[in-house]
């Protein structure tokens, strides 16, 4: 049967941050929204995340960071995607990100940053509105 394109999303945990409860909950919400979610597990380098995203042909990478290293790790993922000519893969982030960092992140190429308190429904709604299967 001719199938509709299904959204494929990667949920990734860059860096040494060891808490992935949030990432897992997001993954679950994405699954319940009908997306195919590839989860990378903890302690990933930006290079590992990008290589996996390319092999998996995802439309969006969702980065989770709770340990304060997002200022380096998040933009680095966008940078490597550009180097690999895979900038068509969108990147968003979430976790403990101070308000002041959000403009910096967006300037670096992240499409959106979700901070604590954001509802799952609003994240799913954002994905549905902004990410189209390529």
């Amino acid at each position: 049967m001719v199938q509709k394109r299904r959204l494929r999303v990667m949920v990734a945990k860059p860096g040494l941050d060891g808490h992935d409860r949030g990432a897992r909950i997001i993954a679950r919400a994405f699954r319940d929204a009908g997306f195919e979610v590839v989860y990378t597990g903890l302690h990933q380098t930006p290079e590992q995340i990008v290589d996996a995203a390319i092999q998996e042909d995802v439309d969006l990478i969702g980065l989770s960071s709770l340990a304060g290293a997002h200022r380096y790790l998040f933009p680095r993922v966008v940078e490597i995607l550009r180097e690999r000519k895979a900038e068509d893969i969108m990147v968003c982030g979430g976790g403990i990100v101070p308000e002041a960092d959000i403009p910096v992140m967006k300037k670096a190429g992240l499409k959106e940053i979700f901070t604590p308190g954001t509802t799952l429904d609003s994240i799913v709604a954002w994905v549905n509105a902004n990410v189209k299967p390529r």
Partner: peptide, 18 residues
């Protein structure tokens, strides 16, 4: 129910991703 899926097998193999 949702048509979605969580694909987590990769977690165990990520050391080979590069």
């Amino acid at each position: 129910f949702s048509g979605g899926a969580i694909l987590g097998d990769r977690v165990r193999m990520q050391r080979h991703s590069m």
